[in-house]
Design a protein around this nucleic acid. Structure first.
Lengths: 129, 129
DNA sequence: CTAACTGTTATATATAAAGTATAACAAGTA
DNA sequence: TACTTGTTATACTTTATATATAACAGTTAG
């Protein structure tokens, strides 16, 4: 799996890494049970610090996207992924709101906004489906 | 116009204020040519610092959502709002991507994601339209 | 004219977040 | 035994955020 970190971005590195791994899961490139690099190996591959990877793993573990085995390593949750419960949906709407609001303010219609959202969805479509 | 700042939020105050003003424009509550409070009055109303408001105004001015007249005050851009050009659309897609990706990872379908996006759109719908 | 207001700029300070660096620990494995 | 694993602790630097105070130049109201 190829992960690119933008060191010029205003988005924190640990957030970028979190997003990239979630994207890998969404695309179906990271399957349940699949092993992830150790914090030390991953940080060296990406050219970042060990604790930055550790922070990302901590967040992914908290959200049940990965399982951490203290002396064995990290793997994509083999028991499947967390559901889109109401807590998540509420957070999703809060994050969507400013994006949709600015789109409306710039004159986009409901259809145009949905179209952009669909484009992003298609781009994340799983290979071979 | 009622603007609420969440001092417990991890989102910077100047960003919250930016989003609230854009939301006001999207809702049609802030119309072109309408005056905005001065940086001093606004900061006192919100219980925040003058420079925090000034930073928000600077961003809104940069994006052409407001016009600033040095010794007269600030107003919602009377000449209309910036278009959803390709630069904005690209930024929009970049911001949508992690949200859509996590939605997919949590098992949401294309229709379910679109539905949530529509909910947010409807919530921002202009009064009386 | 004077006083009050406007956005703007400068300086200083405090706090928190982000990221790095180094080290050590306990436990599993080759 | 040697190496790896996640984890924790400490220390440090840099940047972002937010506040506080002050001053400037020009506009407007009394």
């Amino acid at each position: 799996m190829f992960i690119k970190i933008d060191f010029q971005s205003e988005i924190p590195i640990y957030t970028q890494l979190y997003n990239e791994i979630i994207k890998g899961i969404a695309k179906g490139e990271l399957l349940p049970g699949e092993a992830l690099p150790s914090v030390r190996v991953f940080s060296q591959d990406l050219g970042i610090n060990m604790h930055t990877v550790n922070k990302t793993y901590g967040l992914l573990k908290q959200d049940n996207f990965i399982q951490v085995h203290r002396q064995k390593g990290v793997e994509i949750n083999p028991d499947g992924f967390p559901p889109a419960d109401e807590v998540f949906l509420e957070k999703l709407r809060e994050n969507l709101e400013p994006l949709v609001a600015e789109s409306i303010a710039r004159g986009m219609s409901h259809e145009e906004i949905i179209k952009e959202c669909s484009k992003v969805f298609e781009k994340l479509g799983r290979k071979g489906e």
